[in-house]
Design a protein around this nucleic acid. Sequence first.
RNA 1: GGUCCCUUCGUCUAUCGGUUAGGACACAUGGUUUUCAUCCAUGAAAGAGGGGUUCGAUUCCCCUAGGGACCGCCA
Length: 468
Amino acid sequence: MKKVATRFAPSPTGPLHIGGLRTALFNWLYSKNKSGKFYLRIEDTDKERSKEEHKIQIINSLKWMGIEHDGEEYIQSEMIGEHVAIAKRLLENGNAYKCYCSAEEIEEQKKRAKQKKIPYVYNRKWRDISEDQTPKNIKPVIRFKSKINGTSLLKDLVQGNVEIENNTIEDFVILRNDETPTYNLSASVDDHNMEMTHIIRGDDHKINTFKQIQIYEALGWDIPKFAHIPLIHTIDGKKLSKRDNASTLEDYSKIGILPESLRNYLLRLGWSYKDKEIFDLDESIKLFNLEGIGKSPSKLDMSRILSMNEYYIKNSEENILYKKLKEYCEIYKDKIEEEKENTMKNSLKFLKNKAKTLEDIFNNSKYLLNDKVIFNDSDKKLINDEAKKIIHLFKEKISKIDVFDRENLEQIVNGLIKLKNTNFKGVGQPLRIMLTGSKFGPGIYDIILSLGKKEVIKRLGNVGQDNI
RNA sequence: GGUCCCUUCGUCUAUCGGUUAGGACACAUGGUUUUCAUCCAUGAAAGAGGGGUUCGAUUCCCCUAGGGACCGCCA
């Protein structure tokens, strides 16, 4: 039994989107589960559209989610010579032939087929014409001699048995007239050379598989096992593409989705293990299998991602969470000043219970991050004369206490509520606005304690200034 | 249009012929919390339709409908 080897083979023509990320995840998990290898192949043979920056973005995206490939990344464009050689071999073995149809001629045939509403299949014009009858002034493409009769069966590990009439697979081009190989040739040769045992990829490749299997057979190569996973659909049921919003990894990282949340979400999208919802990294590796993959496409659900993220944030240890927050703020918000570090770390205990994303934490901690409180006009109006009196009294009272803790603060607040014959809101709201510039946020005692006595007194002193 | 695939609550899914069709997210209501949340409890919510097979079908088979993917000298 050969050691399991899987690969993820994106083309670097754009940023990785989360459908691709899920495919990579499934490949990676499967290989880890089988103690096998996982490789990354960059399919950059489309020179026009392939970009180095996208390649880097893809690798970083995988790394972000904890997916690391074995060995160096395999660069497909470097192997073109090999692909061309195989095309020639196929030609010599009689499994392929030169086709002299011009692009215009093919275009014309397609157009006509469309008009007549009949399916277009390349007419195999040059399939059986001997070499001495061919034009010498036209550069041919090389087409693979696909089977014409009978049916082919794909024993797909996810889709089950899929049978297709061979004559629906046309004689596809394997080498263009500029001597460059096409996808189905390159992919087959590379997968063979890389000794892939399992090819796990999107459903959209299913028809290609029939072509690729024929190439394997023509060359006498071992055929890997295939698993075609259903695609991720947008909310209106279409294949997810890079153009859809909220489709790239960046769309999620920028609002502060944690890698482990997205990993868990993507794992459970189209795959299940009993009623289990939360899988830590070890569990996902241990429990992942192809049998658990469903056959129908699934839709992306943002509220589910958010709720997963909320779970992972709540269950993060504060020091680890802080590291992630720090990194997040550096990239997407403002750098957290060093002197705020301890305060922030300590405050995460309560901040993390009110957040679905790192961005929420950032927003809820602005009062700690910024020394100057910014007020909006409608909030300012809430600081009326009565509120001002309460703020003054509160300031006076906390100045006098020795132990600045929750218990003493509660006593003071409750005392004020009684004295002023009001409710908690009557005291809490003015304080909250003065201290944070917002009506919402963490609990008032958390705010006060996290700011510290000195800062609280200072901020409450703003009453009477700045139009307040 | 052709080929192939899919179809259980709004969403992700469990069920491998016998269940009051289960869970999670979202939603609604109530409670806790004197902000917003959290948390807790409760609730509403599904087998596309029609035929078979069977003592019995969500489950197996067929048809219909709906949806999707592919149909490049892109990958």
